[in-house]
């Protein structure tokens, strides 16, 4: 049944205000891309409002991606994100599975211990002192482990597991399956969408990590991309954007507009998130039914 609506004045207002919102989100991103792609000799023609590049030149992308610091940081980010993600999914889901069993003696005490960490936050300074004491300072593990289990996502998973039909578990018990088998053969296949949702959120959190990496990683060759981006785009250090190795190859690197370099590094950093975005949309529409997500 296709129903044709007449376009009324209120439709016009609704569409134009939403289009304005979409425009305000997209336009700064396109403006950045325009800066990144406009050739250096035409950059003076470019306005702060332009969303189309004047001409097309990917020289800054090449320059940035040939900078060893960018490449190392990119690899670090991928490394931290993938290892972190595996640990996140594994430990969150097994703990959530166990905590979804109402009959487990001591469950409420354990839940209280877990929830207390949500309401009382120790300051970053004490966390720093602990990381130093246990010898994780300047190690990738510090930033992987400090967010091994997110309590919000853990609770989300507990709720999800509780909603799985009891019949499955009863059948498994009759067949003599132990908890390992039940988890592996029954729970895992049923919870792929839920795990995708929390997995995507964990991925984004790891990829966007900068602050803990900044204070826990002294060695700049261990920095993830976000910390390097901060150095380039916010602290604004031109020298570090063009490495010494690059200067030999890129004699005219000093001629490149600093704004083009900033725009490019921002784009390199946000590109993986844009790649994930369709997946986020796809699974989140399923995941929203899992219960409210705050954050």
């Amino acid at each position: 049944m296709v129903k044709k609506y007449n376009i009324s004045a209120s439709d016009l207002i609704i569409y134009s205000s939403l289009l304005l919102g979409v425009f305000l989100v997209i336009w700064p991103l396109l403006n950045l891309l325009a800066w990144a792609l406009t050739p250096t000799n035409k950059v003076h023609l470019l306005d702060g409002l332009d969303i189309f590049p004047k001409g097309f030149d990917i020289d800054v992308f090449k320059l940035m991606l040939s900078n060893p610091r960018v490449l190392i940081s990119f690899t670090n980010s991928i490394y931290i994100t993938s290892i972190g993600l595996c640990l996140n999914i594994f430990f969150t889901s097994i703990a959530a599975y166990a905590l979804s069993k109402n009959y487990l003696p001591g469950r409420n005490i354990i839940l209280t211990i877990i929830i207390f960490t949500m309401v009382f936050e120790p300051s970053i300074v004490t966390e720093f002192l602990v990381v130093k004491k246990i010898g994780l300072f300047d190690s990738y593990w510090s930033i992987i482990l400090y967010k091994m289990v997110n309590v919000y996502y853990l609770i989300l998973m507990i709720r999800f597991f509780k909603e799985l039909p009891d019949a499955y578990f009863e059948a498994a018990e009759i067949d003599g399956a132990n908890h390992f088998q039940t988890f592996y053969y029954i729970v895992l296949p049923l919870s792929v969408p839920a795990m995708m949702v929390i997995g995507l959120f964990y991925t984004v959190a790891h990829w966007n990590e900068y602050f803990h990496a900044m204070i826990y990683l002294n060695d700049t060759s261990k920095w993830p991309l976000q910390v390097l981006l901060r150095e380039f785009a916010i602290v604004g250090d031109r020298g570090s954007m063009v490495s010494y190795q690059n200067i030999l190859e890129w004699g005219d690197a000093t001629q490149i507009d600093i704004r083009r370099m900033r725009a490019t590094i921002i784009f390199i950093t946000l590109f993986p998130i844009l790649l994930l975005f369709p997946l986020i949309l796809k699974y989140f529409t399923k995941g929203i039914n899992l219960g409210g997500i705050k954050e």
């Binding site: 984004v204 900068y210 976000q226 981006l229 901060r230």
Partner: peptide, 11 residues
């Protein structure tokens, strides 16, 4: 929402 504050500040 999925961009870090480093990126948003840069923008």
């Amino acid at each position: 929402h999925f961009l870090s504050w480093v990126i948003i500040s840069g923008i």
